[in-house]
Nucleic acid binder design. Structure first.
Lengths: 402, 402
DNA sequence: ACCACTATGTTGTATGAAACAACAATCTCG
DNA sequence: CGAGATTGTTGTTTCATACAACATAGTGGT
């Protein structure tokens, strides 16, 4: 509702130029940016100078080669960075990510946080974050912190409504971290954050798939939907939450209050217990049992695939996003389930009947990373810097007034 | 990717002012607009003058009353108008809608267009449109035409991929209308258009629900999802297409290629045949049979409600939109099914467990209108005018250059 | 070695959109 | 009938981008 002024215009172009430079896989000169934006070279020059002063980008050595005056390449800088935190059922992780996408530092604290007390766990998470943030050193600026949580987050309000596997309800994690040095803390659902990391492995860069449904296999199953590189949030912020889609109304009860939810069949705990494995077994042992032809494990896997099929057919058709990415333990099982799942979905997807190629199902590249949510949380914070760079550009008269 | 210039700034503010004036339920003065936008009165004055010249708004008689100099109220004008066309299984309809939301003229052509030839039907639709458009007269400008179709439309490309009930495939309706006087023709899915009409009964005005899933009950069942007043399109443009969500994998075959689709249970034809009524019976006769306690009709209704429940639970949870609006024959049945459906959805929706009020299910107000899609198609075209008003403002130097 | 050529980046001026300030217009109220 | 209030208009200022000219720094041919 607020009218646009020249400051708005400037901020918009500043963001545009930042996004182009940070998003490019190859370094770009001012002239390249001018060609890409249809702005004039003089305008781009001015904007780039501001971004240089703000620490978002830096110049690198001129590279000759072509005809004419050699260009001055400008690339992403690593002076601005954000901290990504992730609280999970089995570990806490803090990761410091710079604006150029590089990971500056990282620390993991293992533990069992099922049915834990947020007032105990979150201060530990905060302390861990402070230790990692120290790696930024005096030359870098920490712009903020993102916290990925395995639960439902009320968007904007800084409140975690419910994290079933942690046993947390109505928690306000920001103050509980007890780490003011970490700056403003942005909350996010773990699957949402991980999905952001898939679509934007580097801040500002659109790389990898831009339209997909993400499934995060943990104790439960989280989900997120990304459309044209942007997270679909829905009215309350849990659009794409596929773990509690009902697969069978007559199925087993779920702590969420419903019956026969997807995660009762394809969640890690569900798979392990159906296969007769201890809860501590881990997904690799389950996968091994399947490969060895263990009957219970094979049956559990088949049940999980059918449940995934039922839930994902609805999702693919309703959201009109014919691509699925498997993360967490589901990503580790991708070799066993993806081909089958893709075929079944393909025959039942609306898209397949018009658009030729049917549904694709792939694993999150980098399944060895335990905490893609931490990276995604940090990247979300950094995307905010790219979205409104004026706040970080030392201008003569502050232009940030929102 | 195009940089923003001062022309962009101006167009943005022009659109903003237009949206505020057209969207207001009460008339607004220039000073009111200035207060609402945080622009200065002088700037608003200049923008309003342009909108006056462009025919988007008009001044009405000053209304005294308060203190100070009386304001000059500015309201939506009806000089610009758009034509909405709708092709359905049983009728063609053309409706001329002005920018102020008033319907200037309308004509219906009844017929049976199931398994018809687009090369025959569309010219008739075009001729009908031309007759209705003539009502604009010499003083009005027809800005364009929207065409609502009961099928899948490839967004942007002007192609209808498939309309099962018409028996059409891969049709390009624009040229087939053979009516160049109607201007550029914008295609849309019937349910999408109807949903737009629900969220924006008047161009530029956000009135009524802004977050809902729309179900359009025709021979088949169309669906659309509206989030924050905007249509969710998905990657191919059929997000929210709920008619072909699978309710029972073992159910009856559907022309779409799948099995047990929702519309096999809750489509008009399905209800009629399950109740033992002739296909020409009409929905009111079915409703009467239900109210009289006819066993077959009652059973058919119960089956339909269960199917709707199954399909909508997925939709409500995946899209995170806890409101359903019933249109077409489902709207006419709302009295019979809405309370039951709302209760069942409420207990199974994720939202209900945190946000208090659960899922709402309501009928499209104005269920007597046979063709909300035609209105929505016209409104979509008019929203385009509001979005980029510069094209219609006679400026000294053309500012439209996109 | 020299000069034409080419592309990059900078500088100064012009255009134009909104902000700002002052003022004219037109009502109500005492 | 004048004080006060609110609206709308009219210059003037500010500032972001466009435009044009130029300095810069290379390549490549002679």
């Amino acid at each position: 509702m607020a009218g646009a002024t020249q400051a708005t215009l400037r901020e918009h172009n500043l963001s545009l130029v930042a996004r182009i430079i940070l998003g490019a896989t190859t370094s770009m000169s001012r002239a390249d940016v001018a060609a890409a934006t249809a702005l004039t070279r003089s305008t781009v020059s001015r904007l780039v100078d501001d971004l240089l002063a703000g620490g978002l980008v830096r110049e690198v050595a001129k590279v000759g080669g072509g005809l004419g005056r050699p260009a001055t390449p400008v690339v992403a800088d690593d002076r601005l960075c954000a901290l990504g935190l992730q609280v999970n059922a089995t570990f806490l992780l803090a990761r410091l990510v710079a604006l150029d996408g590089s990971v500056l530092a990282e620390e993991t604290v293992d533990g069992d946080f099922v049915a834990s007390d947020p007032a105990v766990v979150l201060p530990r998470m905060g302390a861990c974050g402070v230790r990692v943030a120290a790696a930024a050193g005096p030359d870098r600026t920490l712009v903020g912190t993102g916290l990925a949580l395995p639960g439902i987050v009320r968007p904007g309000s800084g409140t975690l409504l419910r994290a079933p596997n942690l046993g947390w309800s109505a928690v306000e994690p920001g103050p509980l971290l007890a780490a003011p040095a970490l700056g403003p803390v942005l909350l996010g659902n773990e699957a949402d954050c991980a999905a952001v990391a898939v679509a934007h492995p580097v801040p500002g860069r659109r790389e990898g798939p831009q339209d997909f449904i993400y499934l995060s296999g943990e104790i439960g199953i989280g989900g997120a939907a990304v459309l044209d590189g942007r997270l679909m949030r829905g009215q309350h912020g849990w659009a794409g939450e596929i773990g509690h889609v009902c697969v069978d109304p007559a199925g087993p009860a779920c702590p969420c209050g419903s019956h026969g939810c997807l995660e009762r069949y394809a969640g890690l705990r569900a798979l392990q217990s159906a296969a007769g494995l201890p809860v501590t077994a881990g997904i690799d042992r389950f996968a091994a049992a399947c490969r060895e032809g263990d009957e219970a494990a094979t049956r559990a896997l088949a049940t999980a695939v059918s449940a995934l099929e039922t839930a994902l057919v609805s999702a693919v058709n309703l959201l009109d996003i014919p691509a699925v990415i498997l993360g967490g333990h589901l990503g580790r099982l991708a070799g066993l389930i993806a081909p089958d799942l893709a075929e079944r979905l393909g025959t039942r997807a609306l898209a397949g009947r018009f658009d030729g190629p049917t549904v694709t199902v792939g694993a999150h590249t980098g399944t060895e990373d335990r905490a893609p949510g931490a990276t995604g949380a940090a990247i979300t914070v950094l995307e905010g810097v790219i979205e409104r760079p004026a706040a970080w550009v030392p201008t003569t008269t502050s232009r940030l007034r929102r």
